[in-house]
């Protein structure tokens, strides 16, 4: 299923032009930034869901922890952007290790339920811990300091910063799945018993995959906190957990590029529809149903099959 080199180069050029022009193509710059943020989230989620075959229903926990971690660091500790983002990732990873350790002991639907339960637990801790998180009102007043000499306070400059982070995340994501470690994940997904018989410890690989995807989610969350200048409690909520699954499915799980395209299109279409009509949630629902029925393997995989084979 490897694409021809010609197609690859064309794809890279189209992608690069799109990324550079995106802030001018969408209704407002912050929307383009948000599309990329969810794309970063989707890269990490695809490593876990698409390549390891583990469907987590609780990844909003890591997105939100990244957002709160970064936001709290920027408010109380530091004005260094990389350090604050790192704190957000660290917080999410610190939670992901025990959470992943416990939830990867179960398979399939039980794994999904356990992750869901943990995520709700974290949601309610943030909901009640008002003095730290602001509770229901969210964490207000997250600053967006400058990155060295670069002033990030303009939404356009911030977009290009997020774009750079996105490209790094994409390269890292592709490196991870093409590495021997990534191959081992896919082997586990295809046939756990056979992978075990040649000496791979499934628990260890699943846990590492879980923690990596949590790290990507937290990075996205941290960027989101700086984009919004606040952290809504909603960032830990069920809706985000569900949405990232849909983004990955619509784009095409197990393709990395698919979930990226899925995430960007869903963020865009949602914003576009909600400015046009009040019944947009209904239309989104219909779109999901249609895309799952006609593009069962996701948009990217279907296109690959139909046009590049």
């Amino acid at each position: 299923m490897q694409l021809k080199a010609r197609h690859k180069i064309a794809g890279i050029i189209v992608g690069a032009v799109f990324l550079l022009a995106a802030p001018y193509l969408v209704p407002y710059q912050a929307l383009a930034t948000q599309m990329l943020i969810f794309a970063i989230f989707a890269i990490g989620f695809d490593i876990l869901f698409g390549y390891t075959g583990l469907l987590s229903f609780g990844h909003a926990a890591f997105f939100g922890l990244g957002a709160y971690g970064t936001g709290l660091s920027l408010i109380h500790l530091t004005s260094s952007v990389p350090l604050a983002l790192g704190m957000g990732i660290l917080l999410a990873v610190a939670v992901a290790i025990p959470m992943g350790f416990l939830s990867t002991q179960r398979h399939g639907i039980y794994f999904a339920m356990v992750t869901l339960a943990f995520a709700q637990l974290i949601y309610f801790i943030a909901f009640q811990w008002r003095s730290l998180t602001g509770g229901d009102d969210g964490l207000q007043g997250v600053p967006r300091p400058s990155l060295g000499p670069v002033d990030l306070s303009s939404d356009l400059v911030y977009y290009y910063f997020v774009m750079a982070v996105f490209i790094l995340a994409l390269v890292l994501g592709v490196r991870i799945i093409r590495s021997p470690f990534g191959r081992a994940l896919q082997a586990l997904r295809e046939n756990t018993d056979r992978a075990m018989s040649v000496g791979y410890d499934p628990r260890k690989y699943k846990l590492i995959s879980f923690v990596i995807s949590a790290g990507f989610a937290a990075l996205a969350g941290g960027l989101y906190a700086m984009l919004q200048n606040f952290v809504p409690l909603f960032s830990l909520g069920l809706d985000i957990s569900g949405e990232i699954v849909l983004m990955t499915l619509v784009g095409g799980m197990g393709t990395i590029y698919g979930p990226v395209i899925g995430a960007m299109s869903i963020v865009y279409v949602k914003d576009f529809l909600s400015s046009q009509t009040d019944v947009w949630p209904l239309i989104m629902g219909v779109l999901y149903v249609v895309s799952v029925m006609t593009f069962r393997r996701g948009v990217v995989k279907e296109l690959k099959e139909r046009f590049f084979k």
Binding site: P27, Y28, Q29, A30, L31, Q34, G138, D155, Y224, Q228, N229, F230, P232, L233, F234, S235, D239, D271, S274, S275, D278, W280, P281
Partner: peptide, 21 residues
């Protein structure tokens, strides 16, 4: 008129859109 769907994050984005664009 913009819908924020009772979601503070969306409200924040819509406010940006309305003020800027």
């Amino acid at each position: 008129v913009r819908d924020h769907a009772y979601n503070p994050g969306v409200a924040n984005e819509k406010a940006k859109e309305l003020y800027e664009k």
